[in-house]
Amino acid sequence: MIRCTDVCKFYQQGDNRITALAGVTLEIPQGAFTAVMGQSGSGKSTLLHLIGGLDRPTSGELLVDNRLIGQMSDDQVTLFRRSRIGFIFQFFNLLPTLTAAENIALPFVLDGRGKAEADARAAALLAKVGLEHRRQHLPEELSGGEIQRVAIARALAFNPPILLADEPTGNLDSKNGLAILDLLRQVNRQDGCTIVMVTHSEEAAGYAERRIYLRDGRVEKEE
């Protein structure tokens, strides 16, 4: 599903070249639940961003869902991301003025779908994450765990084959964190969704079938 071959990413800051990824090679098969771990600055978020098409590799080949994502135009990668990749962020990142249902319907609306279809899909996804009763609530009226559930529901809008999660439990208490991880496992097992999750937490990583450890922009080990 995801194949990285000698992927490098450098950032130029003034005269200094910062190495984020220094030649990562790995393969994540379809339906896998993979955790990417490592210390701060090890390159794990960068790897996630590259897989999601949020950024482009400096060199190397990156194949996502059989598409060479680094060679796509901005619009192509945006449309690809919209339908094939779901994103979950640490800080939830819901739009504060939209209700839970509207936030979930957002990708459909951006895709130009009709309101009825978007509303129906949003209702189904809210039911899936157990928040039917919170449909009309604004993010500020929801708890941290509920917000992250809405974010997961939004990420699943188009039933994407790939779900990328950047520290999805990093901002939650342990009880809510575990509930989110249960939900992710459920999505992985029931829908066959490939999940790549960046985390610091060993406990969270324990939910994944495979753990990849990064250090200084390289794969240090796999478990």
Partner: peptide, 10 residues
């Protein structure tokens, strides 16, 4: 950024 991440075009 979030909008772009979830599929909003430029």
């Amino acid at each position: 950024g979030v909008l772009r991440a979830i599929g909003a075009t430029q």
